[in-house]
Design a protein around this nucleic acid. Structure first.
Lengths: 342, 342
DNA sequence: TTGTAAGCGTTATCAC
DNA sequence: GTGATAACGCTTACAA
């Protein structure tokens, strides 16, 4: 390893060649321009020797191609999103793209600013798992021509491409199972109320009751975000009722953890005193105090597909007319957290 | 919102001003150049109206300032690193920096390529949680002048800035506790053998035995990476021994989960048949089948400090001469996974 | 088979 | 108070 060279110009100089030729070789255009094998070898060799790294900024400026995607996630410390982020990163990089990671912390204003930031960075496309209650800023970005795919918290009512789980069916499956185990008084602790996954899961909840000819008690649908705190608080409130529910349907893994915490603190047992089923399978789900029955989502498929679709939008102008809406099957994993009653 | 303008030039045109003036206003240099209040207002107003977003590529090219940091993590789906990543992202953004996220998947070659990639992207600095067995590529990058901070898997033997936990003391605390509970035959399931956290924790393990005047049985120090699979496999092997250990010290949360899985499958109970203590506290630690005794690390402090130090290196040339080595206290959290014996 | 020069969108230097 | 212009590092017509 000799001296370093920071320029394509520097490289050209030490080689006694023109910038053009060097650039061509480095971009694999030697054949097209019939560059001599010797020249080619010398260039490649020197690039390695002088540790030359092309400047993506300059390249991006010239080509309007930054090899960069933006990812906006509401909470990367939530393992559900960490898993999605991992598969997105993997797929993106395998296709030659880097990822700018942004954590909106479930803050709508931050989310808006992050989009602006990514635009400033000239990312070629954006994958966003939004807060899910408002979409003005998102659709505006999309309409301005920025390739964009929404993940998880989608907005089916508008023309925004998305990929998400079949939350409706997941909700039905969960509640059907609970009902089949004899439960009638089933609480549902929601995530963010107007966010689509919550809306759909609650719709499934209602549908399952209807299918079984059982009336729904709306007062059992509680909670307001996907956090552990929410799960904890709502459980405490539910158990301060005259006649608490016999089962809880937690709409996220974090909420589920909060429920367990509350149950635990009250000296109660799952499933003896209360049954629990939670959305999102996690590595620890099987090893909790009571191995938990969960609704599993295809997280890595979701991430991978999001990238694939986004890249199609980026590279194929025709494809951009299609607004892809994709829904992935969920899967009920039965363990021990639901007791058969009656 | 009227038409969009993609240029500072476009903006200047609609305003009938020069590019220079517009640039100055937008960069808060109106006072220095005594730009009239009216002009100033018009510019700001128009920028908003025409939805102008400065091009960070062009700016970066000109100023050699990209407002971007690189983060390399071995596995973002590991909640330990997800937490660190979150605090890094938060701190970086609060200081005006964006983050390019790279997941090396514990692959040394990938790690090397990722560094090159980040250099190409002209990040202003790099935070890396490396595989931890080799550092040639890292020190070379650092020596070439790239501000860089190593996190978690550090290399104290060389002049690379780092911030990590006091893994040695953490190891001592864990094993001291185990010994105080009457255990003598204590297995240690390692992470990557030559990585510093593992080395230090094992050193603590040995030290605790020595302090208590108990000989160490080296055959009980097993395992080779931080994964769940490793924890699982090693536990099965340990229990195929004549006289299995009475306690296991798992050197990561993932390993701990693998141990639990194996124990579970064998129909054994924690802590009745085997005691367990694991590095890394997680939200679920308290709610596992047996609430787990853990060694907690200050993850968010680690991330935040890493960014702060890195930014000092970036902005303060003088400071760059200092090689910061920082070690964060760990904390033993006692729960129910260790049984008192004898 | 190789080279010259313009231009990507900014900011800084110098001039008025 | 404001404006021309060169330059950042790269790619790509257009020349030769």
């Amino acid at each position: 390893m000799k001296k370093e060279v920071n320029d394509i110009r520097g490289l050209a100089e030490v080689l006694g060649l023109s910038i053009t030729t060097v650039s061509r070789v480095l971009n694999g255009k030697s054949i097209r321009y019939r560059i001599s094998a010797t020249t080619q070898q010398r260039v490649v060799q020197a690039a390695k020797e002088y540790n030359y790294k092309p400047n993506k900024l300059a390249r991006g400026l010239k080509l309007s191609k930054t090899d960069t995607l933006g990812l906006i996630i509401p909470d990367i410390s939530n393992p559900f999103f960490a898993d999605i982020a991992q598969s997105i990163e993997k797929e993106a990089r395998s296709k030659g793209y880097s990822l700018i990671l942004c954590d909106s912390r479930e803050d709508h204003l931050v989310e808006k600013e992050l989009i602006e930031l990514l635009i400033s960075h000239k990312v070629e496309g954006i994958i966003i798992a939004p807060m899910g209650t408002d979409y003005k800023h998102i659709i505006q970005t999309y309409d301005s021509g920025m390739p964009l795919v929404v993940v998880d918290r989608c907005f089916p009512e508008i023309g925004l491409p998305f990929i998400t789980s079949d939350n409706y069916q997941g909700g039905i499956d969960a509640v059907n199972y609970l009902i089949s185990m004899g439960h009638r008084k089933i609480a549902c602790i929601q995530g963010i109320p107007k966010s689509r996954p919550t809306v759909e899961r609650v719709r499934g909840y209602n549908e399952a009751f209807r299918n079984n000819g059982i009336p729904v008690d709306d007062s059992l649908i509680v909670g307001n975000d996907y956090s552990t705190e929410n799960g904890y608080k709502q459980t405490r409130i539910l158990f301060s009722m005259e006649d608490p529910p016999t089962a809880i349907f937690a709409l996220s893994n974090l909420i589920g953890l909060g429920v367990i915490k509350a149950i635990d603190e009250m000296g109660l047992k799952i499933p003896d005193n209360i049954s629990l089923i939670s959305f999102d399978e996690q590595p620890y789900s099987a090893f909790l105090g009571t191995p938990m029955t969960t609704i599993d989502q295809k997280k890595s498929e979701m991430g991978q597909l999001a990238v694939d679709i986004l890249l199609k939008y980026i590279t194929n102008k025709e494809y951009r007319k299609k607004v892809v809406h994709m829904t992935l099957k969920t899967n009920l994993i039965v363990r021990d957290s639901v007791k058969k009653i009656n």
